[in-house]
């Protein structure tokens, strides 16, 4: 009985040790992956900040103004002016389609309403 218990305990310890060993290795592997991802995120962020700076630099108002001037014959861009604000009433809506004249209209059934 006793030796059986010893045997069981030894086996349990071996199993646990094996499990702990594996967990330890997996943890280290995960940490290494996290580190790699972090440094990748850092690099991407760095790249992003460079791109943002470049975007801001390329879109600086002075440059855009010069480009608009250079390309004026093609684009015809001018500074925004008050009269460029429109009104909904100025929009030309399409006319409703004309009714087919060959179609008969039952005037009596309409009872005074428009078709």
């Amino acid at each position: 009985m006793r030796s059986l218990a010893f045997l069981a305990a030894t086996l349990a310890i071996m199993a646990l040790a094996f499990w702990a060993y594996r967990e330890n290795y997996r943890t280290h592997a995960e940490l290494a992956e996290v580190r790699a991802l972090r440094s990748e995120i850092g690099e991407l962020r760095e790249g992003l900040s460079v791109l943002r700076a470049e975007w801001a630099y390329l879109n600086r108002p002075d440059r855009l103004r010069e480009l608009a001037d250079i390309n004026f014959p093609r684009l015809g861009l001018l500074p925004l002016e008050p009269q460029q604000f429109g009104d909904v009433r100025q929009v030309g809506y399409p006319m409703p389609p004309l009714r087919d004249l060959s179609e008969p209209v039952d005037v009596a059934a309409l009872n005074g309403r428009t078709p």
Binding site: E46, S49, V50, A53, A56, N59
Partner: peptide, 9 residues
Amino acid sequence: GRILATNLL
């Protein structure tokens, strides 16, 4: 949100 000052490495 347009950048006025930023950092470059």
